[in-house]
């Protein structure tokens, strides 16, 4: 028996907006602790991790661990139909994930479960020299700014500032932000702007983002719900000078 009820439909909507742009299919794992998902895109450039603990839900019941494999595009199409004020209920039957949106009316969708042969990948454990928090909106603005001049983004942090910058053929752009955190080293890596943009589609998950940066290391970006019960995080492989 699996049943999860959520009053904030935006959590799923915003998470899967990002997830569905990164991976075509996912294996969600449900157990008594909550729901989680680990997925790696086809070209192994982006890793995504979603964790929604029991406490995120208004009601949560899962008697035995189960795997819920779905096509992310199909799921996203359905989630887009949820209204902000709808209660979302997730259940599963023999071959479907069932989503019910309860508002003015009760609207029910079934999404066919798919076969996924492989095991969900586990995230690599990396040691980072820096960790700092920035407002999510600043990241969102930065990618718009950088997009004017380039399709790559250089992220740099030092004791004082976090900088997003790019040098393009026709011009340059730089965004500086005083992070106000204790950082003792500086770090810089370059990323594909398109890939960063995919992760930042999850713009309603959290107001701030925790970034971990190293030199020519993957970007670790974590969005945490205020209650600490939910997390959406990403790892993005850098572009490295050849």
């Amino acid at each position: 028996m699996f049943k999860a009820v959520l009053s904030d439909s935006n959590i799923l909507k915003t998470s899967f907006d990002a997830i569905s742009s990164i991976v075509d299919e996912v294996q969600m794992q449900a157990d008594e602790e909550g729901l989680r998902l680990d997925a790696l895109d086809r070209s192994h450039i982006t890793f995504v991790h979603l964790e929604l603990k029991k406490g995120v839900f208004d009601e949560y019941q899962c008697d035995e661990p189960m795997k819920i494999n779905v096509d992310t595009e199909e799921l996203m199409k359905v989630l887009k139909r949820a209204k902000a004020e709808d209660m979302v209920e997730l259940t599963v039957d023999e071959g479907n994930l069932i989503l019910s949106f309860e508002g003015e009316a009760r609207r029910k969708f079934k999404i066919r479960l798919i076969d996924i042969e492989y095991e969900a990948p586990s995230p690599p454990q990396l040691e980072y020299p820096t960790e700092f928090e920035v407002p999510f909106s600043l990241l969102k603005d930065s990618i718009q700014d950088i997009g004017i001049v380039s399709d790559k983004i250089s992220l740099h942090v030092n004791e004082e500032k976090f900088e997003a910058s790019a040098e393009g053929e026709f011009g340059d752009a730089k965004i500086e932000y005083l992070h106000g955190e204790k950082i003792e080293e500086s770090a810089r890596s370059i990323f594909s702007l398109e890939k960063v943009k995919e992760m930042l589609k999850a713009d309603k998950f959290s107001e701030s983002a925790v970034l971990r940066l190293g030199n020519d290391m993957p970007l670790n970006l974590a969005l945490k719900m205020a209650s600490d019960e939910g997390e959406l995080s990403f790892l993005l492989a850098p572009r490295i000078e050849s």
Partner: peptide
């Protein structure tokens, strides 16, 4: 000129 790396190099 940089090139896109994959996470595989960092997975181990």
């Amino acid at each position: 000129q940089e090139k896109q790396t994959s996470l595989d190099a960092f997975f181990n």
